[in-house]
Design a protein around this nucleic acid. Structure first.
Lengths: 122, 122
DNA sequence: ATACAATTCATACTTTAGTATGAGTGTTTT
DNA sequence: AAAACACTCATACTAAAGTATGAATTGTAT
């Protein structure tokens, strides 16, 4: 196919040779991109860094975000309380506020939403 | 630069024209791959596919794995029950069995463990 | 100084999650 | 056929999660 194209360029003359070469370059440039995307990077997903601006925009305080991370790691309120040296009551308050700010009904949903918002790592 | 290359091909004559075009194709093919890799996929991490063998090894049934996915998406037992057209009681049974098989104390922990085991997507 | 936000905690309450147990119905395996 | 398994469901219970309300403390901005 490549040789047919080059033969065709000989027939049409030198006038549009630059355009043909440029066309080939563009085609293979695109092929290179798509090959790389579909073959070599078949098993990748984009992972952006944590969006600190979005955390602020949501009105999440430093402590609330800290609690959110622990929730996402699978800890119970009591376990988080012990880890952060506060009462379970305090964690409950934080979690409640987190749910409101993330518009979630449950902590599991909060985790999902937080990840979609790129507030939490995967 | 592109036009200089094409001019060069005119000077050298028609003999190696195919090779020059092929060379250009290869060059831009590689450029396409590298551009795609370095610029567009700067923020990517490898994500393995779901390890179905591991699911089996854990003894998770098809239905249990189905429930696990819904749990991870942030749904409540009742919501999962409605989605799968079974009773909440059934979902509770499934979740309980999932926790035992994943050695988790809570559903949030089960989600974490499942992701570490590459049983769930991120 | 005072208004404000963040953090802490408690108490009381409702809801959801999770456990234990037993059991019925299919399907597959031996 | 009988055993084994997967799926279903119920009831009753305990534990954890989540809500509502009020309040004290501390640091910070005005």
């Amino acid at each position: 196919m490549l040789f047919k194209l080059s033969s065709y360029s000989l027939i049409t003359g030198n006038i549009s040779l630059e355009f043909i070469i440029a066309g080939i370059a563009i085609v293979f440039f695109v092929i290179g991109i798509s090959i790389n995307k579909k073959v070599l990077h078949k098993k990748t997903i984009p992972t952006k860094d944590i969006d600190h601006k979005k955390i602020e925009a949501l009105g999440l305080s430093k402590r609330e975000y800290e609690v959110l991370c622990e929730v996402a790691s699978g800890l119970s309120n009591k376990e988080i309380a012990d880890k952060l040296f506060v009462s379970e009551s305090t964690i409950k308050t934080h979690v409640s506020n987190i749910l409101v700010k993330l518009d979630a009904k449950r902590r599991t949903q909060a985790i999902q939403i937080a990840k979609e918002l790129q507030i939490l790592r995967f």
